[in-house]
Simulated scan of single mutants.
Amino acid sequence: MQVYLAASEWIDSDHPAIRACAARLAEEGGTPVGVARRCFEFVRDEIRHSWDYQDTVVTCRASDVLRQGTGYCYAKSHLLAALLRANGLPAGLCYQRLSVNDTGAPFCLHGLNAVWLPEHGWYRLDARGNRAGVDAQFVPPREQLAFPLQDRRERDFPAVLAEPLPVVVQALTQHDTVQAVHDHLPDAEEITAHA
């Protein structure tokens, strides 16, 4: 479980701004479930999804997502993992493979999280950000993710990873604009716990 609590380059839960935000969110959370809910709702509702808002900055590192207030789903999942870890809650990254336009190919990865809750074990949550047709909620033990699978080639990968996939980091760090990231969204047909 220690790897799901550790700070790292992209999930920098030891950054002072992350620690301060995590402490503020924990003040009203109380139980692990309450703290997880507050962290989830903060990232879902207060951090803009880059594509939805056509923000100009591309973020990857959790502290940059917090500072800029924006990120793709992957970057938002890095921030949520960092806030949860800063509050002592084991957290990892999960992925789905989804149709970009809901009509088959092309496909891309979608980033979300899992948190270890003492009452429920690993619980997946999706802080992508709600909009018309997207209603992700925190209602353990039931999952209510942003996107249901609709195509036979879509995938719901069960692995809970401690670190982001290299292909995700590459997409967020090698492109300077939100449009460029969108034009090069990462994809994978298989993901294992050791990916």
Rank of each mutant, 00 (worst) to 15 (best):
G69I: 10
T56Q: 14
G29H: 08
L185H: 05
C39M: 11
A6I: 00
R19G: 07
D45V: 08
H49I: 02
A36V: 05
L109H: 07
L83S: 06
F42H: 12
G34D: 11
I47M: 07
F147Q: 05
A20S: 15
R19Y: 06
H182A: 13
P148C: 06
I191L: 09
H110C: 04
L5C: 07
R67T: 12
A159H: 01
L84H: 01
L25F: 08
Q54E: 15
D151W: 10
D102W: 14
I47H: 03
H49M: 02
I11R: 01
V139T: 14
A6C: 04
S63E: 10
A91L: 05
H110G: 04
L112P: 00
A75V: 02
T192Q: 03
E9Y: 10
D135G: 01
G104N: 03
A114E: 01
V178P: 00
P90A: 11
A36N: 03
T59D: 12
L79D: 02
G29T: 11
H15R: 07
D156L: 15
Y123N: 10
A159I: 02
D14T: 09
V134Q: 05
E143N: 09
P186C: 10
A105T: 12
E143Q: 15
T59E: 12
W116K: 08
F138I: 06
H110E: 06
Q68F: 11
A91P: 02
D176V: 02
C108I: 00
L84N: 03
A81D: 00
R152N: 05
D14P: 00
R61I: 12
R85A: 07
A136P: 03
S50C: 11
R67W: 11
R44I: 03
Q170Y: 12
R142S: 13
L145T: 02
Y95K: 13
E9P: 00
Q68R: 14
V168Q: 14
Y95R: 13
P16S: 08
A6R: 14
E189F: 09
N130P: 06
G29W: 04
T192R: 09
C60R: 05
R38H: 14
E143L: 15
Q2D: 15
L172F: 06
L112V: 01
P16R: 06
